[in-house]
Computed example of a mutant assay.
Amino acid sequence: MKKHNYLLVLIPFLIGITSSCRHEPIQPFKPMETVTDTTGNNPEGCSPDTAYFNRDVMPIIQLNCSVTGCHGGGSSKGGVDLTSYQSIINTAGVDPFDPANSNLYAVITETDPNKIMPEPPNSPLSNADIAIIEKWIKQGAANNFCADCDETNFTFSGAVFPIIQDNCLGCHSGSAPSAGIPLTTYNEILPFAASGGLYGTINHDPGYVAMPYLGSKLSDCNVNQVKQWIDNGIMND
């Protein structure tokens, strides 16, 4: 969920990606000191007792918050930029180990419709997503990661579509998807994958706009899963 000579199908990425955000600008959150603690990193596997920033937290934020017109894609409403770990720490009022004192947690649990994020009519975060963010903050809000990716699984339903859901639908869904490229169903994804655009953008190949837009590159494992799915025939499996 950065070069030149872009393909025609991708030119719109450069000229105003179309998601919008309708709430009034809020006051910027007070930046905190840079958090560099990465304890909990586990390149060999993922602990069920740990909330990982790269696997658990960032996909939620990318899908719901760090979109163009709100807090990503070149936009930072209220001075809040949610496109990377450091920008989240610096602008979203995250207080490690203390969700109750963290503005990021406060706005996603707000009951006032004029203050809650994501703003209506967008759907609020699910209880499960809120619990993940709360757990991550309680555990220190570290820039932690783990490897929990099986490159032997490259089916559309089991691997590719979940990757797209977590990293792409924040911009490429709804009535006005970014660059006019919707990615909400297999039939919408198929032509983009067949043209080479899907792999080229997520692999940050020359001639393609790197995706997720202004976000971190997908893991090598996720990129390889998409590539294997394409090489295997781009099936709806």
Results as ranks from 00 to 15, higher is better:
62 Q>N: 15
63 L>S: 12
63 L>D: 10
64 N>L: 08
64 N>V: 08
65 C>I: 13
66 S>K: 14
68 T>S: 09
68 T>F: 10
68 T>P: 01
69 G>M: 12
71 H>M: 11
72 G>M: 09
72 G>H: 11
73 G>I: 08
75 S>R: 03
76 S>D: 07
76 S>G: 06
77 K>C: 11
78 G>V: 06
79 G>R: 13
79 G>K: 13
80 V>L: 14
81 D>R: 15
82 L>F: 15
83 T>G: 15
83 T>Q: 15
85 Y>K: 01
87 S>A: 14
92 A>T: 07
92 A>W: 11
97 F>K: 05
97 F>D: 02
97 F>V: 00
99 P>T: 03
100 A>G: 14
101 N>W: 08
101 N>K: 10
104 L>N: 01
104 L>A: 09
104 L>M: 09
106 A>Y: 05
106 A>C: 02
106 A>I: 05
106 A>G: 01
107 V>P: 06
109 T>W: 07
110 E>V: 00
110 E>M: 06
112 D>L: 12
112 D>C: 11
113 P>R: 09
113 P>A: 12
115 K>A: 13
121 P>L: 12
123 S>W: 09
126 S>N: 01
129 D>S: 15
130 I>Q: 10
130 I>T: 04
130 I>K: 13
132 I>C: 02
132 I>H: 03
134 E>V: 09
136 W>I: 07
136 W>M: 04
137 I>E: 07
138 K>A: 02
138 K>P: 00
138 K>Y: 09
141 A>C: 00
142 A>H: 15
146 C>Q: 02
147 A>F: 02
148 D>M: 05
148 D>I: 03
150 D>T: 03
151 E>Y: 03
152 T>A: 04
153 N>F: 01
157 S>I: 07
157 S>H: 13
158 G>S: 00
159 A>Y: 04
159 A>T: 01
159 A>L: 03
163 I>F: 09
164 I>A: 00
164 I>S: 00
165 Q>R: 07
168 C>D: 13
171 C>A: 11
176 A>V: 11
177 P>Y: 15
177 P>E: 10
177 P>K: 09
179 A>P: 05
180 G>F: 15
180 G>K: 14
181 I>S: 07
181 I>Q: 11
182 P>A: 06
184 T>W: 14
184 T>Q: 15
184 T>Y: 13
185 T>N: 02
185 T>E: 02
